[in-house]
Design a protein around this nucleic acid. Structure first.
Lengths: 147, 147
DNA sequence: CTAATTGCAAATCGTTTGCCATGTC
DNA sequence: GACATGGCAAACGATTTGCAATTAG
């Protein structure tokens, strides 16, 4: 039965997933933060700041890009977001509560396929340990050709 | 005219590894390109442009950063260098003729450790197969924190 | 009310580029 | 000599920041 930890109270009805995390970490919730949190919660991809800003403004134009930049950075520091770099010069963001996933790039078409593989992640963690490190982030890109 | 060819003999005495690759690809070899190629050949780490520039100037100050940027970009297009992104905002470079290896980046210091792991490569190949692809190239970057 | 947050525009940072001088093939 | 290449400084695109006005707690 997945009745997601909802019995706490009625607040969660209106609070987005990410907003909830913000509140848990004691962040002062302004209108723009709530907005950005909502946009993030509703996104299933890895938007960059420009894209987040676009989506946010579409819902409420009382935000500026600067605020999106500041918020995204704050949430990263709070461990709510993870900054990703898929190349292309802009940072992209990934809610930390999503699992680790990787990318397979079709070298012929340029298509990108997302996948995850627990066995791989475990192995990577082991490699890190072997080298004396605690795994913080993992980037695996497989370039392949359809067969 | 420069008298640098040693008839019959191994040119590689004077040419750096990277310079040789440049010549093979028909690049016009100027003094600054030769210099940068040498710096790259003698580097065992993954310097960024600023660092390459520093090392180059130390040997011969007749270079500018702009040229380092242009050269590094050119060599990348020619497949002599690979551009890497280890975070920190600056691109770092890796001669393409080094063996298959991956990177562990110390998130606190920015230090990069090279390693290879046959087990991992095998697993990656399997993952690619599982997704219907033939592995062409592999990029694994582990971001970790010393413990 | 107080301290944190926002918007705006100016400032940074890494990187690219236009223009003209210079050097290679 | 033709054409690629180098230097310089200005241009750029993404991100940050100073400051005054606004707002959450």
């Amino acid at each position: 039965m997945d009745h997601d930890g909802r019995e706490g109270g009625p607040i969660s009805d209106r609070m987005s997933r990410i907003e909830q995390m913000c509140v848990e970490r004691g962040l002062k919730m302004t209108g723009q933060r709530r907005l950005i949190a909502r946009v993030l919660s509703e996104s299933e991809d890895h938007p960059d700041v420009e894209e987040l800003y676009r989506r946010a403004v579409a819902l409420d134009n009382r935000v500026s890009v600067a605020t999106v930049y500041r918020t995204v950075r704050l949430l990263e520091e709070k461990g709510i977001l993870e900054r990703r770099d898929f190349g292309g010069g802009r940072a992209r963001f990934d809610p930390a509560d999503r699992g680790i996933h990787h990318h397979l790039i079709d070298v012929d078409t340029g298509n990108v396929i997302e996948f995850s593989d627990a066995e791989h992640d475990t192995l990577a963690r082991e490699i890190a340990h072997r080298l004396g490190f605690e795994l913080v982030q993992l980037r695996l890109e497989i370039f392949g050709r359809r067969r």
